[in-house]
Simulated assay, not measured.
Amino acid sequence: MFPNFHYTTELHINADAEAVYAAIADFNSYSQWNPWLIQASGVCAEGELVDVTVRLGRRVMSVQHKVLETVPGRVLRWCDLGWFTKAAYGERCRTIEPQATGGVRYRNELPVTGPLAWLAHLFTGRALQQGMQAENEALKRFVESGGSTPEA
């Protein structure tokens, strides 16, 4: 059995589930707000392919993803389709849970499995965790500001 690694970040967003989902499902707007997935293009529908440019620390790389599950207002799940997926497979799931007190709990999970998951963890684990956290915080700012980015 190979060791697996599981990266998780979560936070509270003062917005409704539909607004949060609309932001993460609009791949073409990622360049406006997302510091980790700095560019994306594609359609948010199960089975669709999405081209993503990701910032991992100081490196920038392009990777294709496949949308696996969409539940509007609740779940967006996709997987990497890069050359490395046979050795270290990642499947990211973002969940949105409305809270009785208002807003949502937003959870971003990325399990990495496979015979070289340990190597991916060694070389990119910290950048993955930091990227996910930066994305969460940027999403929170973006959605709570009504879907606009601050002027530079």
Rank of each mutant, 00 (worst) to 15 (best):
F5R: 09
T8M: 08
T9L: 01
E10C: 11
L11D: 12
Y21T: 00
A22E: 01
A25D: 06
D26Y: 04
F27E: 05
N28I: 01
Q32K: 13
W36K: 00
L37Y: 11
S41Y: 02
S41W: 00
C44V: 02
G47P: 03
E48F: 00
V52D: 03
V54N: 03
R55T: 00
R58E: 14
R59E: 10
V60C: 06
Q64N: 08
H65G: 01
P72M: 05
P72T: 08
R74F: 01
R74I: 00
V75G: 09
V75Y: 07
C79N: 14
C79T: 13
D80V: 06
L81G: 03
L81I: 03
Y89T: 00
Y89K: 07
E91R: 12
R92W: 01
R94H: 11
P98G: 06
Q99T: 04
A100W: 03
A100L: 09
G102D: 08
G103W: 10
G103C: 09
R107M: 11
R107A: 11
E109F: 03
L110W: 05
P111E: 09
V112P: 10
T113M: 09
W118A: 15
W118Q: 04
A120R: 03
A120G: 10
H121E: 12
L122Q: 09
R126Q: 13
A127S: 15
Q129P: 06
Q130G: 10
Q133P: 01
E137T: 11
E137V: 10
L139F: 07
F142H: 13
F142K: 04
V143Q: 10
S145H: 10
G146I: 07
G146S: 05
S148C: 05
A152D: 09
